[in-house]
Amino acid sequence: MREELAAVGRLTGSPNATAALADRLRHRLRAEGGGALVTDPVGWLLAKGLPQRRECAHLACDDGIRLDTGTDCTTCEQRLADRRSTRRALAREAVSALPDAATAEQRRTAVDERLHRHAMLRAEQQVADRQWAEQRCAEADTRRAVREAQAAAAEAARQTLPCEDCGTPDMAGLCASCWGMRATRAAIRECVDLALAGSADLGDHRDVNAVATHVRGELRAEMLRARPAGADLSGIRACDLLTVQNAAAEYRASVRSRRAPHRRCRP
């Protein structure tokens, strides 16, 4: 029930899904002859009442009615018109192939035979189309299974890689501790770059070096002050990362406002 309600909601909008599903059940109960004739309510709901029945290829079609608009399905109407047009054309072809002296019974028989042959050919084509679609789906499933297996194998191999920085095995290329150190260094570089952009004479190497040295020294001092007493190595590194990330956020705000960084000025 919930899955079908969600499916209807995707076509009608969630607020209208309950009413649309209720209309479907009422319509199908009337077609059944009334609820009194339903001897197995649960089975009827699962097999007949709840499932969407598309009369055509349109995703919103349900028993010839559009779920999204509540109007007759134009795709179904067009399909019906096409069928009628095809029947008329086949009847004309069958009659035109008969001699002028053919009786009405002979004409009816010729038309019925032509329609029957057309129906058989159409059924064969539908079977072939369905088999082709099933084959394409099977091929797609096979390709997807191969891709998933390859991805799983690649991920399993990646998980066995040692840490690039410290060499600890089975760290998928980078352990959490070294990742934190990399992130800390990257944040420090960002702070230096932002400070240089905001206050240094980039054409003066001594000024650039002075600003960079000052920012790094100030960040080191702040990291030392922020470290909790008694913290282990992982706790210290996590605290250092948070400290420099907060500093980088302050520098970014400072550059955006074109003001010198608060608490961080050139020596």
Rank of each mutant, 00 (worst) to 15 (best):
L121H: 06
D165L: 08
R147I: 04
L196M: 08
G198A: 14
D204L: 00
E139W: 12
A186L: 05
A238Y: 10
A212P: 13
A110D: 05
L224E: 13
E113L: 07
A154K: 14
L161Y: 00
C178T: 02
D112W: 04
A172P: 02
Q131A: 11
A151E: 08
T160D: 14
V111G: 06
R114E: 14
D165C: 00
A231W: 03
C163R: 04
A172D: 11
Q126G: 08
A110K: 03
A156M: 11
G180E: 14
L196F: 03
A153T: 03
L115E: 04
E124D: 07
A229C: 01
R136S: 10
R130W: 02
R189K: 07
G198S: 12
V208C: 08
E113T: 11
A110L: 04
P169D: 06
G235M: 03
L196V: 06
V111K: 03
E155T: 12
D112T: 11
T160G: 05
I236M: 09
A128P: 01
P228V: 04
H214F: 11
T168I: 08
G235D: 13
S199G: 07
T142S: 15
S234G: 09
Q135T: 13
D207T: 02
D129Q: 13
A172I: 02
D204G: 09
R220N: 07
A138G: 12
L161P: 00
L224S: 10
A156W: 08
G173D: 08
E134Q: 15
L121T: 09
A123F: 05
L224C: 06
G230Y: 01
I236D: 14
R144N: 15
N209T: 08
R216V: 11
S199C: 01
V211F: 13
M120Y: 05
E124M: 04
D170I: 00
P169E: 10
E222N: 07
G198F: 02
V208N: 09
L161Q: 09
R147Y: 12
E190I: 10
R143N: 15
L161V: 00
H205M: 14
A110C: 07
D193S: 14
T168E: 07
T213Q: 09
G217L: 04
A187K: 07
A210D: 14
E218D: 13
T160I: 05
E113F: 01
A221S: 13
A210E: 11
C239T: 15
V146T: 10
S234N: 14
T184F: 03
G230I: 00
R158E: 09
A119W: 05
S177D: 08
Q135K: 13
L121G: 12
A221L: 09
A212S: 14
H205R: 15
E222T: 01
A212Y: 12
A110W: 04
L121N: 07
R189D: 13
G203H: 10
V111N: 04
A226R: 10
V192A: 05
V127H: 15
G167C: 06
A212H: 10
R216N: 05
R220V: 07
L233F: 04
C166M: 00
E155S: 11
W179E: 09
A154Q: 15
C239P: 01
R136F: 09
G167L: 02
R237D: 07
E218M: 12
C191D: 03
H116T: 12
S199M: 01
T160S: 13
G203D: 15
I188L: 13
Q125K: 08
Q125T: 10
E134G: 12
D129H: 03
P228I: 00
M120A: 15
A197S: 14
Q125Y: 01
